[in-house]
Design a protein around this nucleic acid. Structure first.
Length: 861
RNA sequence: GGGUGCUUAGCUCAGUGGUAGAGCGUCUCGUUUACACCGAGAAUGUCGGGGGUUCGAAACCCUCAGCGCCCA
């Protein structure tokens, strides 16, 4: 049943229309992609949010932009797939469930691995994925029939297959290395799971050895000295050159250790001599390998001192630091101390515990060849980064990447598909394979990014050769914040390019910024400036939130967000609502063919010309991912051109009837405007468009096309003149204290085309057409305006206004004269610029004459 | 320490060589049958400082100052 002509409520209430419209779209199946379609594919995979997550303002931005692209392409006739899903978020999710257990006084070990993992699945079924429901409120046009989870069967299969493929290609290996270790989560972390903060530590200088055979080392980690295997200096350091190769006494444990020379030591740092603690520092580890320094482990997995054979065993690492320094002081070995000493310290990104470098056996991905392929894909132009200014950051990262530690000592995640035999054999078990009897599987699981890094192809069924994979890979564009360029994007690039035989996962990487508070400060819980997108949607509607975010989305840059701005977008929605309501009350229609443009009045011609320009420019801005500029453009067309000028200038003809052509034109303009706005504000545009046109849905409507034959310079010039006249008269009325509502006798005398519109202008200006004796008269361009102010002209106000205007114009005139009198300018400036200045000079002269005459005509009150 | 941005109206930001812009805020007037979530009008800027290139610089170059982010 057609909904056309359904009367619109006088106020727009988003809450009433949003949910039903989303239901309508879903039940119509508009978002379900067809792998067998003959249309060209346009694919986006949603960066999968954590299963533990709720929708935050950053998601809202990310999804607004993706939805906008998806909807545009759908309207342009592409087979659009926007694939949603979630990430199992290993540590985060395990932490959530462990906390629940802890509340019952239990740990995961009380349950055992199998039971615990069951418990996590149970948690996921009951409370996971809240964000998916929240995405529906945003209006996201995702294909729910293809929803994926990184732990589901298909994706697990992909993980097994890729692990094996990478292992066979010798891109995965197991080794004993110094890794980042979280003593609270009890697992290894990759570099990107470590956050560096400036912490207040201490910097002490400790004398090793005695007398001639002594050296002072500087350290922030005195507690690890029991694990020292050497002291290192720079090979060219004159202070220590003579000592290289000799030994000094390590205090507290009374062990002799060698002094070695290594380029890595910075002679300007501290004393220029550093302790080498091979098992507890990544740099020291590197040096130790080069110089055969022994690895002495003096701390356990909980960060408790263990194995040093000293009184400090059993102490927490931080307590031990204090105790060790106190003891050294007692022994007279502290040469200098600096406290607090501010330096960067790594923290676990999940629980904030200070990370401990730890020697341990882990699985690694050899990234060099993968990173190179990823870098090449961008360098060759196969993958574009938008905005291009962010590409150097990408290269900086991929060109200097360390091997990636992928094993985690967790239970929630993809278990490493490696099995060990009784005699140290090792097999990697791929999909559908099984390990020989008696083999035991590796206890660890894989880093979550190992599976989410496969998101661009595992979601389509890889390694099977599926129809989806053939149709939708590689994806068209990846939309994400620049903050996860190094985390997820680089991993996607590496793993996809390898798995898919050199075909990178996306054609374009479109990076947006972060949403910050209204003062441009980062949102954080501690600052208390975090905003909730759901609250905003309740209050202002999803369209208002989306439009605000899109309008702030300049490529690659952060945006500030204030609640009032969302209110402003809500006002815009209301404006659209009322304008459409007014238009329909006045007979706006899309029935029948468009009238012959040449027969239209200039106002109609003008709005069609402006519409064409708006469609053309907005479309090109959208194609360039310039969401902010496109939004701004459409906003001003709708509010300024359409509402403030077109509707006002057309009121006379609507009031007097005989406006069939204008009704059709207005119907067309609104129809096209709603299409253009639909990707940004899907709900209200759908409601209004269906009401106006009786069409089925904007989701499947055609994207507006700029009809270039509508471009009309003459009409634009004419309306610009009308606007100037109206603005000038309004200003005069205002200065004279005439109420905006008051009708006053007046007439606009002019000739030529403009004369046809003096009654339309008079209508807007509330001029009464009757016989009168003018008490005020002035000229605006070719238009002479005469008004009857009933004798009460405020001469002083008018004189002040005219004097001010005169000063402005005289300044303009002077600027133009100076330029034209400048030989250099005349000789070197382009002709069109010179012409423009000459025209400006003529205009200013005319203005000056006009204003001077007006001033002279004023009574000398 | 290395890299990389930024500094334009009260606030947040557009503006890559030709008369300084937007949104919000501010001031004045206004309940006109689309809209007070509105309309009309107005005010507001040595474009961070200094130097240079150019006929012409907010824009290009140098320099200083301040702020931010990423990496170590």
């Amino acid at each position: 049943m057609s909904q056309r002509g359904k009367e619109l409520a006088s106020t727009f209430s988003p809450a009433e229309i949003e949910a039903p419209l989303y239901e309508k779209w879903i039940s119509a199946g508009y978002f379900t992609a067809d792998a067998n379609s003959k249309k060209e594919a346009f694919t986006i995979v949603l960066p999968p949010p954590n299963v533990t997550g709720v929708l935050h303002i950053g998601h809202a931005l990310d999804q607004t932009l993706q939805d906008c692209l998806a909807r545009i392409k759908r309207m342009k006739g592409y087979e659009v797939l926007w694939l949603p899903g979630m990430d199992h978020a290993g540590i985060a999710t395990q932490n959530v469930v462990e906390k629940q257990l802890a509340a019952q006084g239990m740990s995961r070990h009380d349950l055992g691995r199998e039971e615990f993992v069951k418990k996590v699945w149970q948690w996921k079924a009951e409370s996971g994925g809240a964000i998916l429901g929240q995405m529906r409120r945003m209006g996201d046009s995702v294909d729910w029939s293809r929803e994926r989870f990184t732990m589901d069967e298909g994706m697990s299969n992909s993980v097994l297959a890729l692990f094996k493929k990478m292992y066979d290609a010798e891109l995965i290996y197991r080794a004993e290395r110094i890794i980042n270790w979280c003593p609270r989560c009890l697992t290894a972390l990759s570099d990107i799971e470590v956050e560096h903060q400036d912490d207040a530590g201490e910097f002490v200088q400790v004398r090793y050895g005695d007398g001639e055979q002594s050296i002072v080392v500087a350290t922030t980690r005195a507690e690890t000295m029991m694990g020292d295997g050497a002291v290192a200096v720079h090979p060219d350091d004159p202070r220590y050159k003579h000592m290289i190769g000799t030994e000094v006494l390590l205090p507290l444990v009374n062990r002799m250790i060698p002094i070695i020379a290594d380029e890595l030591v910075d002679p300007d740092f501290g004393t220029g001599a550093v302790k080498v603690t091979a098992a507890h520092d990544p740099n020291d580890f590197e040096m130790a390998l080069r110089h055969n320094v022994p690895f002495v482990v003096i701390m356990n997995e909980h960060g408790i001192m263990e194995g040093s054979g000293t009184e400090f065993d059993g102490m927490d690492r931080f307590d031990a630091r204090v105790a060790v320094v106190a003891k050294l002081k007692e022994l007279g070995r502290i040469v200098a101390e600096k406290r607090p000493y501010i330096h960067a310290v790594g923290h676990c990104s999940r629980c904030d515990t200070t990370v401990e470098p730890r020697l341990s056996k882990q699985w690694f991905v050899k990234v060099a060849p993968l990173a190179k392929a990823s870098a090449d894909a961008v360098r060759s132009g196969a993958v574009k980064i938008e905005p291009v200014e962010l590409a150097p950051r990408y290269f900086d990262w991929v060109d200097n990447m360390h091997d990636w530690c992928i094993s985690r000592q967790l239970w929630w995640g993809h278990r490493i598909p490696v099995w060990y035999g009784p005699n140290g054999e090792m097999v990697v078990v791929g999909p559908g394979e099984s390990a020989p009897a008696g083999y035991v599987q590796d206890a660890d699981v894989l880093d979550t990014w190992f599976s989410s890094g496969q998101w661009a192809f595992s979601t389509f069924g890889w390694p099977e050769k599926t129809a989806d994979l053939a149709k939708f890979y590689p994806t068209s564009v990846l939309v994400t914040g620049y903050d996860i360029l190094f985390f997820w994007v680089v991993r996607m690039m590496m793993m996809s390019t390898f798995a898919m035989d050199g075909v990178p996962p996306f054609k374009t990487i479109m990076l947006h910024g972060l949403v910050r508070d209204q003062f441009g400060k980062k949102m954080s819980k501690s600052r208390g400036n975090v905003v909730d997108p759901l609250e905003f949607m309740d209050k202002y509607g999803a369209d208002a939130l989306r439009f605000t975010l899109a309008r702030g989305a300049n490529p690659g840059t952060d945006q500030a967000l204030a609640e009032e701005w969302i209110g402003g977008s809500r006002n815009f929605a209301t404006k659209l609502w009322n304008a459409t309501r007014f238009a329909m009350m006045n007979g706006a229609t899309v029935e029948g063919p468009m009238p012959d443009v040449s027969k239209l009045n200039a106002i109609d011609k003008w709005i069609l010309s402006r519409l064409t320009e708006t469609i053309r420019d907005a479309d090109s801005l959208f194609e360039k991912f310039e969401f902010a500029k496109a939004s701004e453009l459409i906003y001003h067309f709708a509010w300024d051109d359409l509402c403030d000028w077109y509707l006002e200038l057309s009121k006379e003809s609507f009031a007097t009837g005989n406006a069939a052509d204008s009704q059709r034109v207005l119907g067309h303009v609104l129809d096209q405007l709603m299409r253009l706005l639909h990707p940004l504000m899907p709900f209200i545009t759908e409601e209004l468009w269906v009401s106006l046109t009786g069409g089925e849905s904007l989701v499947i409507a055609q994207w507006p096309e700029a009809i270039l034959s509508y471009l009309d310079n003459a009409a634009e010039n004419l309306v610009t003149q009308m606007q100037a006249v109206i603005t000038e008269v309004r200003r005069f009325r205002n200065d004279q204290g005439v109420k905006a509502t008051a009708k006053i006798p007046g007439r606009l005398a002019t000739n030529g085309e403009l004369a046809k519109y003096s009654s339309a202008m008079g209508f807007v200006l509330k001029l009464e057409a009757k016989e009168f004796t003018p008490t005020a008269s002035f000229e605006i361009g070719s238009v002479k305006c005469e008004l009857d102010l009933s004798g009460t002209v405020d001469v002083a106000a008018e004189r002040a206004r005219l004097t001010k205007d005169l000063a402005t114009v005289q300044k303009d005139q002077q600027t133009a004269q100076v330029k034209l009198g400048n030989e250099g300018f005349m000789a070197k400036a382009p002709l069109e610029v010179v012409t423009e200045i000459k025209e400006r000079l003529v205009k200013t002269q005319a203005e000056i004459e006009r204003i001077t005459a007006a001033l002279a005509a004023l009574p000398s009150a």
